[in-house]
């Protein structure tokens, strides 16, 4: 029963929250849709947290996403021991880096008086869940090798079963506790997304690359405008 709630129901709750509240916040409180950087208050330590964290977590997340979206492609990519090993140790190393970086970020928030002032309870919840997520991730990657490979045949079908609204929780029920924790915490983070400064993940300003440098906005209709 508990398993059904955790792996069959909670993901839907989390996704619903993320989408509904995310949209609500975007429409009615767009002002708050940012990461609220604290670099201005403390820059040196932040560098050692933020830069490795973001780049490493982006790579790790895209690997998770790739294995979910294109399982057969991912399967054939890992179908050679050399490639498998290279990807796995890179993944583990990136995971270790995210753990270090998240510890740096947490310690910074705790120890710097200025940064502490702009830290709210939800920030702590978010940071600690992120830390839990990367620690369990690294633990799984090291003690249950090779996660990148079995993910495609366990987690991917589970996720797709969720997408098709016929959750097959069997895939996770017999997994070790730490894998379950990793999965549930992942959806907890999804649920946390609209309530925390995690909203900044959807404000990636890619349009910047194509827009012209200067922006001019007219508040009046001009005569020559057609």
């Amino acid at each position: 029963m508990m398993d059904l709630i955790l792996f069959g129901v909670f993901p839907y709750v989390a996704m619903t929250l993320a989408i509904a509240v995310g949209f609500y916040r975007y429409c009615f409180d767009r002002y708050s849709y940012s990461s609220q950087s604290s670099q201005f208050l403390e820059s040196r330590t932040l560098f050692w947290g933020s830069v490795p964290w973001h780049y490493a977590i982006l790579l790790i997340l895209s690997a998770h996403l790739l294995a979910f979206l294109f399982p057969s492609l991912w399967g054939s990519l890992l179908g050679a021991p050399g490639r498998l090993y290279l990807l796995e140790i890179t993944g583990i190393a990136l995971g270790v880096v995210t753990t270090i970086a998240m510890l740096v970020l947490l310690l910074r928030r705790a120890s710097n008086a200025r940064v502490n002032v702009v830290t709210t309870t939800i920030d702590w919840v978010l940071l600690i869940s992120l830390l839990l997520q990367v620690i369990t991730g690294v633990y799984i990657a090291i003690t249950m090798r090779w996660g990148g490979f079995w993910y495609v045949h366990t987690v991917t079908p589970w996720l797709w079963s969720l997408v098709s609204f016929s959750p097959k929780i069997d895939f996770l029920v017999n997994m070790p506790f730490v894998v379950k924790l990793h999965a549930v915490n992942a959806f907890f983070l999804v649920a946390l997304f609209p309530f925390s400064r995690l909203v900044h993940v959807v404000s990636i300003p890619l349009a910047y690359v194509t827009r012209p440098y200067q922006l001019v906005i007219w508040y009046r209709q001009r005569n020559n405008q057609l």
Partner: peptide, 22 residues
């Protein structure tokens, strides 16, 4: 984010606080 713009009529440069993502 494209939040900063120049007003066409008077050239005043402003930051749209709702578009600014910090």
């Amino acid at each position: 984010s494209g939040a900063i713009y120049k007003r066409g009529e008077d050239g005043i440069v402003l930051i749209n606080q709702d578009k600014c993502r910090g």
